[in-house]
Amino acid sequence: MRCGTARRLLWPGTGPQPVTDAVTEAEAHLRTCAACRHFLADQTAVAEEIERLAPRPVAPAAVRERVFERLARERVHPPAGGRRVSVRAAGLALAAAVMLALSVWVMRSEPGDVAWQQQVAAVAEDHVRSTHEESIVSTDAATVQQWLSGRVPFAVHIPMIPDAAFEGARLCYLDGRRGAVLRYRVDGRELSYYLMPAGPSALPSATPERFLHGAESGYQVVAWHDAGLVHALVGNLPEARLVELARFCVERSTARRESAAEVASIAATLRRAW
């Protein structure tokens, strides 16, 4: 057998091959031919060298973000009548991201729940409606707080987060429940603070002491459970930064509740909500 034929038949990395007479003959050739053994060893060595030296850059965070943002838009606006680019695209992507993230958590908390895919669809649809919900643009917390009272079934206290500019609020629907979204700008990026009444399946393992972290569609999400509400901070910020902001929100909320009057008021609000 010629060396070329033996090398082709014994070419490394092809996976299991049928043992034909030709292959048997090639193996016999290999036992007696040092050049062919050298050839096979060299192919392995070259492959290993390429594997070791090959450039493996990670994807830039900005690329990742843009791809996941586009996906979030795709979930909300499937291209039925051609592609539309919404001026609210960035906001849509952010809201879609938080809903998807929350859906994932609901699924994780109930591993047997096979209906979660439909939940995602329902949630996305709620989201489309929520974008047409009322909003208020104001940097004055008292004004916004007053605007929210009566529009959501719980009392909203707007924390003045350090190094964050408060920009206003809007209403949202999540899982059929009405919530409030407080809008901030932190380090030049949009930060949303979601407040929603807790449903029966919402984040059972989260407490004011225990945050749930998630990354979805390029956004970091930190959520917790406190006083009958699901709180979630969503933004294109490092997770550590988001956790730090979440801790601040919890501290503010705890300090507030130390007042007995406050506690009574929250309890009354919650009773009305349930």
Partner: peptide
């Protein structure tokens, strides 16, 4: 291909 392999 065999010719090329043989020329290695």
């Amino acid at each position: 291909f065999e010719r090329a392999l043989e020329a290695w």
